[in-house]
Design a protein around this nucleic acid. Structure first.
Lengths: 209, 209
DNA sequence: TTAACAAGACCGACTGGTTGGTCTGTAACG
DNA sequence: CGTTACAGACCAACCAGTCGGTCTTGTTAA
């Protein structure tokens, strides 16, 4: 790919994360990328396209990871574990993308917005499906409505972009493990706790206990 | 207070929620509020002040509710239950405020931003404190780091603004009850589950079980 | 080897439209 | 008659996007 194109993306990502899409002008972007208006508009149709590309980069990755996690494992317990772990880890790789994604998605042009919605929904449906399977197989508690549990899980993970910092107190893997433990305790029947928790990777990696 | 001022706030809130702060011009606001530039700037110093007032209205309310819930109850279990319930219910009352709050807070002017941060932090600290108390008293599991658990809870609740709809499948009280159940299962020791769940209000209001 | 040409990459002054905010005027009210 | 509440024409700044032009790189043919 083009050197300059990559540079513009990296630079604008930082700027957008700090000041928001509307808080950054194209002139600022080209200045920070050591290029010009001409250079910018040679590689991007518009400022909006730049916003879209940022969105697409990250959501495409998440979707791919989730599909892989879903196919590799059989039981709902292992599936949800793998999806959550992969999902949480994404925040270490793509935090700037995600910040922009959630802060500015409202400003995507309709055509772009449609594409995003399709991919977002595909991911959401995968999570819902796993929970449903788990409830039907009896691995998960049946008392809790699948949709609310699903949104609770998506919410607690998505919110990570608001507070996670790479040099913070906890590593992304520690956070992922706590989240998995938290979620499994919440959705597994009480009787299977002991067993399940000890089966999980939490014992293999006793970071902070 | 002034009739017009309230009208402007209501109207702009709807517009901001739908199109974002930058997607709405002052002219659109005054048109939708049946007033004029003069009317607007008679009541607000700037468009930014309007954004601030929206933020402040909601966060002040949340803080008040949380303090009340915290003072009324003694045990960490009841406290966390009450705080979560109150917190979730806020999304029914103030969903537009909250949407704007989380989407556009990045654009607050520094002076406004400072005030917001103080109140947000105060709320966060209350949640952290309750979890800490619970872990120290042995009511909550001690294996999970308080900060991560706290952010998980804040995240799953905060995310509600992305999907909750008043005329949706589940009422705000149902959602609140599921969240409380979900959280308590996650943070209570396994042994106390049976007991706790039956103690909670979940049995008093068997909506959908 | 090199001159001629083409095409893509990049430059930056300029513009047209938009937008937050101001200012002068006026009507209602007490 | 002064003060508050509002109206609406106006303005200055800003900003995404354009456009004519230059520079670089690759290709072809003599």
């Amino acid at each position: 790919m083009s050197e300059l194109r990559e540079s513009i993306m990296r630079t604008s990502l930082e700027l957008f994360e700090k000041h928001g899409f509307h808080g950054v002008t194209v002139n600022q972007i080209v200045a920070a990328s050591n290029t010009s208006k001409g250079g910018f508009y040679h590689h991007f149709q518009s400022k909006d396209e730049l916003l879209f590309v940022i969105h697409d980069t990250f959501i495409t990755y998440v979707l791919k990871e989730a599909k892989a996690a879903n196919e590799i494992h059989q039981s709902p317990i292992n599936k949800i574990q793998a999806i959550v772990k992969a999902f949480v880890r994404v925040f270490d790789l793509y935090k700037p993308h995600i910040s922009v994604f959630y802060q500015e998605s409202i400003y995507l042009k309709p055509e772009y917005e449609k594409q995003m919605k399709r991919k977002r929904d595909a991911f959401k449906q995968m999570v819902f499906q796993v929970i449903k399977e788990g409830q039907e197989s009896g691995d998960f508690r049946r008392e809790l409505p699948m949709e609310i549990v699903g949104m609770a899980i998506l919410g607690m993970v998505n919110w990570i972009y608001k507070w996670y910092q790479r040099d913070g107190k906890y590593s992304i893997d520690q956070i992922a493990d706590v989240y998995v433990d938290f979620i499994l305790h919440a959705i597994l029947p009480s009787s299977s706790h002991q067993q399940q928790v000890f089966d999980s990777h939490l014992l293999e990696r006793p970071f902070f206990y």
